[in-house]
Design a binder for these strands. Sequence first.
RNA 1: GGCCCCAUGGUCAAGAGGUUAAGACGACGCCCUUUCACGGCGUAAUCGUGGGUUCAAUUCCCGCUGGGGUCACCA
Length: 483
Amino acid sequence: MDKKVRTRFAPSPTGYMHIGNLRTALFTYLIAKKNGGDFILRIEDTDRERYVEGAVDVIYNTLRDVGLNWDEGPDIGGPVGPYVQSERMGMFKQYAEELVKKGEAYYCFCDKDRLAELRDIQQASGITPMYDRHCRDLSQEEIQKNLDAGLPYVIRQKIPTEGTTTFHDEIYGDITVENSTLDDQILLKADGMPTYNFANVVDDHLMGITHVVRGNEYLASAPKYELLYKAFGWEVPKYIHVEHIMKDKQHKLAKRDGDASYQDLMQKGYLKEAVLNYIALLGWAPKGEEEIFSLDELIKEFDISGLSKAPAIFDPMKLKAINGKYIKALPPEKFAEYAIPYIKQSVKREDVDLNKIAALLQARTEVFTDIPEQVDFIDTLPQYENSLYCHKKMKTDETTSLDALQKALPVLESIADWTEENIHSALFSLVESLGVKNGYILWPVRVAVSGKAFTPGGAVELCAILGKEDSLDRIRKGIAQLS
RNA sequence: GGCCCCAUGGUCAAGAGGUUAAGACGACGCCCUUUCACGGCGUAAUCGUGGGUUCAAUUCCCGCUGGGGUCACCA
């Protein structure tokens, strides 16, 4: 029987959750849960330069918000802690030294100046910059002498000079590269701290990680990882390299694009379920035709074979559409709860029924931030052109509209109890007695009352919301404007 | 530039050596409807390009083109 699946999400606390990152977390989580395994959170906070106050909370909050709950992590602990990389720093030196003993790594005393100079020369002559292995074959005596003299050193990986290295990726298959193209990368820095690549390999091994999901940018360093695992004699985890999320064909979705982070999207009025659902679909395709999935459904549906090899372009339209589906599926009370703050942004008057407005809005809202503009006519009737009254299909124009409004006004004035039902029957009996099409009366009324071409609801609903006095007032204004 | 990866409609994408080349978003058209929306129905791709292999390739191989990634004592 296979051992238990363990996956990990290992973000750097930058204070920003890119949706590509969140998607990686999602896939990582899904692979674990799909196989009844554990999802582990490891914070990679060793980059002090990039440290941002409160950034770890952004990670916690985002993950919790969308329901990606971790089984082990900094806050809840676990058997293979610590789960914050800065607290693990002391443990890497011994592993680097173990590799030196095995002849898989070596001490390097080259200083940064020499390396910079080397790089300059190589670049100038059009060669790919690589360490020239100056210290690779130092004698035991030389090494000892330097060590005794207290010279600073790093430990480098000893890459085979010949042959090829092949690693396996679950979506790309086998990938082979010439060892001669691989650099003798630094494992342990002069300050005794591990480099990212080295720490990653050791941490993943120590934490028993079985599947590594990471961005495609790591594909190029994967052979070096492969070699490291082999050097240690450790079992290599399964790799799943996922492609980037693009803004367009040649640019990755970046922070400045405004759609790039989970926080951006939340601010724009998207539902977290919709965002999670949409990003799952970016670079992954379900087997069937269904596209709307809850997190639990994703666990059932997800399969690595559906992952794409090509980058995917982020499509705000599609996100909107999916968000709209989630909004329509919301219980009306829930929708009202979300929508009312947005309605209040443009509706300040207090004599209108916000819940009623919300009910009208639900079927025609794709994103909450669209709401204020849809209901801005409620507080004040906007200026509008008489051309709004003209509708070829309704066969209305300025003349017929004036007539319609003049006929509708007294009928509406006579309504004692201003309810939607009463308005409806009053207007429809007028239509009937005149023997005209519904639109003959209703279209002009709606225009007069809203001043807009598109409104959330028809004439009857709008009148009911605005109240008798305001509705009649607006109709009178319409009559005046048309006269 | 070296190395690696990728390439089906505007976008996300399914797909198999021989199919009418799914579906979704968007677009367009029609229907429903008191507008818009919602809903329903329908329309639009020969699979980047040039060569192979094959009875047959969009599906396999090679070149080209295009795009992406990567080449730090950063993570």
